[in-house]
Design a protein around this nucleic acid. Structure first.
Lengths: 331, 331
DNA sequence: TTGTACGCGTTATCAG
DNA sequence: CTGATAACGCGTACAA
């Protein structure tokens, strides 16, 4: 590989000036600039990014932490972020934590070891007290997830309100026995808590009391959904509506219902979460809560880049985006 | 940030020995090793990767080129690769080419500028003659896609054969008027060509002749599928089976059929491609060709890492994996 | 077994 | 406007 030295030699001009040409500095004689460019082309010169990083301590790289890329919610988010980052000349390192605290910390170490300029947290596994110290090494922005004590920018919808609206929709549609599925309990996350509160508030606002037997915990996959339906089938006192908090779980319930006596939505109404593509494709069409994934990803990455380019500073602001209840056939 | 110098100073030991400890060299006095480790812990020292890269010209980073991360096929592939790479201590840079030749070349430049040690091509936009020169800068391995002239390792299924089997399945099931959808025509890709050949071979082997009107080109999305069904509906001479080459297109066809007089599968049998999760969830269940995505991703990344760690050398071998026709209700 | 000294490729500083 | 030089942090030949 040719280096800046080779270019200097070939063009008969000093390294410094070559460097200036590379970085588009003013105050370079036009004729020399030409000679340098010519030499660069001739040698197929390209700056060594490791050296640039070492020298300038900027990597033009951002780490995006998600729990699992195969989840359409996350891949959509990453897609949106990638577009904005690429546009601004940044690279993305994919950090699949797979729900592991340890992996999350390993990825946060990318910030400490100067391998990335910033970190976007789209999932959070560790308690904030564990993550907070990493702020000393660079900016961290969160998206979707958040924690109470956090002092970082955050972009997300209001899960409490979204759930409240969904459950209220059930109630207004005449359903009175409403069950809820909650996802995996994660230490660092508040989303599940918010949703549960929204559910309970909607019930109490309409003078209903929750039924402990209708709380299905740790449900997040299609298979979990299938199991939920089986458990409901075995009950004597069955719910007639269920807030699943996940399109996958909702799909599992619907798929399983076709092998059972329970009919969706006549015996059991269902509301999912995310409005994944399949929600509108299946029969019956799945009523679900749509998150503005594209906007969330774009705005998060945009904000991160503004921080990295010193156009704005870190703060603890929460940026709330709007969710939308998409009513189809299952409710 | 503390450097190796600080560790040396604190422990009263030379930089070289500290470096030896970091890199687990033999010939280091146990007592000193301890002292160094102690000092590292005390200072929270962590090696600066940019310096390591500059010095050693290894980045421990691999670029994965795909066309779009939101495609479940690609996110599954990336997930599998990520697992293997992480395990081996490598990072993945996500390269969403979005079907752009220019972006693909920009990403290949990561290899030239020493920002990554190797490149995995899971999608190919440019002709091989354009890509080939990059081999001078580091190893390139392909996965799923391939090109005739290529001299790089490749992991994929046999698309000709998979299609041949699917179409033969149609024929053996009594369908005689078989249509085909082909994806976006990409310059660097042979998959579409292979599939079309498989389709034609299956027909001719059973003394059938293709009908030009039943070739639906450039179809790759759910929406494209919907349009295909509309076009079929408008035909006087309709096919009674269709090979879609894509679960998305198949889903579009099925969804649209519910708003038309055409019934799936009685009026129109459908076969998809990939066996995405939704294929088994919808009604009717989608017959589709399953690719071993997990295995493909794992083996590709495993091979790349073996090359990067000098356990094996670059070659032009093709590693064929087995696909499987999953017969459900639509055929 | 340990330390000295050099170089990896860039860029910023400073003197001219 | 330009060039010499130092410095970024690390690894390793070489000498001891």
């Amino acid at each position: 590989m040719p280096t800046i030295k080779d270019v200097a030699k070939l063009s008969g001009i000093s390294r410094s000036t070559v460097s200036r040409v590379i970085n588009n500095h003013p105050y370079v004689n036009d004729e020399k600039r030409m000679r340098v460019k010519q030499a660069m082309k001739e040698l197929g010169y390209v700056p060594n990014s490791s050296a640039q990083r070492l020298r300038g301590s900027k990597t033009k790289t951002i780490a995006v932490l998600i729990s699992r890329i195969v989840n359409p919610f996350f891949s959509g988010l990453v897609d949106a972020m990638d577009e904005v980052a690429t546009e601004a000349g940044f690279q993305l390192i994919l950090c699949n934590t797979r729900g592991s605290k340890e992996r999350e910390l390993n990825y946060l170490d990318l910030l400490r070891t100067k391998q990335v300029d910033g970190v976007v947290l789209a999932s959070i596994e560790n308690p904030w007290t564990t993550i907070q110290p990493y702020l000393a090494y660079g900016p961290i922005v969160s998206c979707n997830e958040y924690t109470d004590q956090s002092d970082i920018p955050s972009f997300r919808i209001n899960h409490f309100q979204a759930t409240y609206e969904a459950v209220t929709h059930f109630i207004n549609s005449g359903y009175s026995n409403i069950a809820i599925c909650t996802g995996d309990e994660t230490i660092g996350s508040n989303l599940g808590v918010d949703r549960e509160k929204g559910y309970l508030k909607a019930l109490s606002d309409h003078h209903m009391t929750p039924n402990e037997a209708w709380f299905f915990k740790n449900t997040s996959s299609v298979l979990d959904g299938r199991k939920v339906l089986e458990r409901i089938e075995a009950m004597s006192n069955r719910p007639n509506a269920i807030y699943t908090g996940s399109d996958e779980v909702a799909m599992g319930i619907i798929a399983q219902s076709k092998q059972s006596a329970i009919r969706v939505p006549s015996d059991l109404a269902v509301i999912g979460f995310d409005d994944q593509q399949l929600a509108g494709l299946i029969t019956p069409g799945l009523t679900t809560i749509r998150q503005p994934i594209l906007e969330m990803g774009q705005r998060t990455m945009h904000h991160m880049i503004r921080i990295l380019t010193n156009q704005t500073k870190m703060d603890g602001n929460t940026h709330l985006l709007l969710s939308e209840l998409i009513v189809r056939d299952t409710s």
